[in-house]
């Protein structure tokens, strides 16, 4: 199959996936939350007033019309008005998504930046105490739930030593012109330390172990034996020859991880009060703000699919050995 044909096919697939997800989402919500205006009762609204709101949100229409309306609006990027915020959902969601992505990407990059060389080094010292400890620590952080390590980290660094901020993205109040201005500050970095570290520690295990195991396989290959025979220093063999050849599976894993990163880590956002999209979904469904919950989830899914697509395309470009299957 030609490269172009492959691209078109992948894009079509992505759109198809998105449509299926949107449909599932729509019916899930209608099944689980037949009357989303129920929560407004606490505010003292009576039945008539709620009926008015239902009409305003198109909830009185037959289901299939609601579905078409929903799809049509979604295609136009029109996700309606948040129930509780009375603001267009899209405005709220994009910024939250960006916040989630910066946390996740920073953490993943950190995890791989540490995990890959460390894994290579462990393979070199295989069987040693360092190797066992390395595996143990990597797996340990992979096994500990992030909300727990996060809580412990807050206790130690935030409450106990009071050296790191434990909630939010910035010290309040602050003035920022747009999102980048908010991110490109020392204060932001300071706030990001704990959450990024906790997520990174969780992700550390997979590059570490994959790298270590692939390296072990690579050691057996002929070209390594030859390098050894040439009497090259072990360090050079390790980093110049073996590591380069062992990178492929790690990169594959990285691609998958990044692809799913938009899903975020809801618990980390909750524990660290990080204003991300996952927490927004949690709040939205809790407050029955179904337009917001629906849109947040759909945008999240769209982003996951797009990321997967991009990673795939990038991957095929970088490594021609991957067939356009």
């Amino acid at each position: 199959m030609s490269r172009r044909g492959y691209l078109i096919k992948r894009v079509l697939q992505a759109i198809f996936s998105l449509w299926i997800i949107a449909t599932i989402l729509f019916f899930l919500f209608r099944m689980g939350l037949p009357d989303p205006t129920a929560a407004l009762v606490t505010e003292g609204l009576n039945a008539e007033q709620r009926a008015a709101i239902r009409a305003q949100f198109g909830l009185e229409e037959p289901l299939w019309r609601q579905y078409l309306l929903f799809l049509g609006n979604a295609v136009q990027g029109e996700f309606g008005t948040s129930f509780s915020y009375r603001a267009p959902v899209a405005d709220i969601v994009w910024e939250r998504l960006a916040n989630t992505m910066i946390l996740m990407l920073a953490a993943i990059v950190l995890a791989y930046a540490i995990g890959v060389p460390l894994g290579a080094w462990l393979s070199w010292r295989r069987g040693s105490r360092a190797d066992t400890t390395g595996i143990f620590v990597g797996l340990m952080f992979r096994s500990a739930p992030m909300f727990w390590t996060g809580m412990i980290a807050i206790l130690i660094f935030g409450v106990g030593l009071s050296i790191l901020p434990t909630s939010g993205m910035r010290t309040l109040p602050y003035d920022a012109d747009g999102w980048w201005d908010k991110i490109l500050t020392l204060d932001f970095l300071w706030h990001a330390v704990l959450p990024v570290l906790i997520v990174a520690l969780y992700y550390l295990g997979s590059p570490l172990l994959i790298m270590r195991n692939t390296m072990l396989e690579v050691y057996g290959e002929d070209f390594i034996e030859m390098a050894r025979a040439k009497g090259l220093p072990e360090r050079d063999i390790l980093y110049k020859h073996a590591a380069r050849n062992a990178l492929l599976p790690v990169v594959t894993q990285l691609a998958v991880t990044i692809g799913l990163a938009a899903g975020g880590q809801v618990v980390v956002e909750v524990v660290f009060s990080w204003p991300g999209l996952g927490r927004e979904i949690l709040n939205a469904v809790r407050t029955s703000d179904f337009p917001l919950a629906q849109a947040s989830f759909l945008i999240m899914a769209a982003f996951v699919i797009t990321l997967n697509l991009l990673v795939d395309i990038l991957y095929t470009t970088l490594d021609p050995r991957v067939s356009f299957q």
Partner: peptide
């Protein structure tokens, strides 16, 4: 029950 469901069952 989740709060909104609870209100729904009770009031509506």
């Amino acid at each position: 029950l989740e709060f909104s469901t609870l209100l729904d069952r009770f009031y509506s």
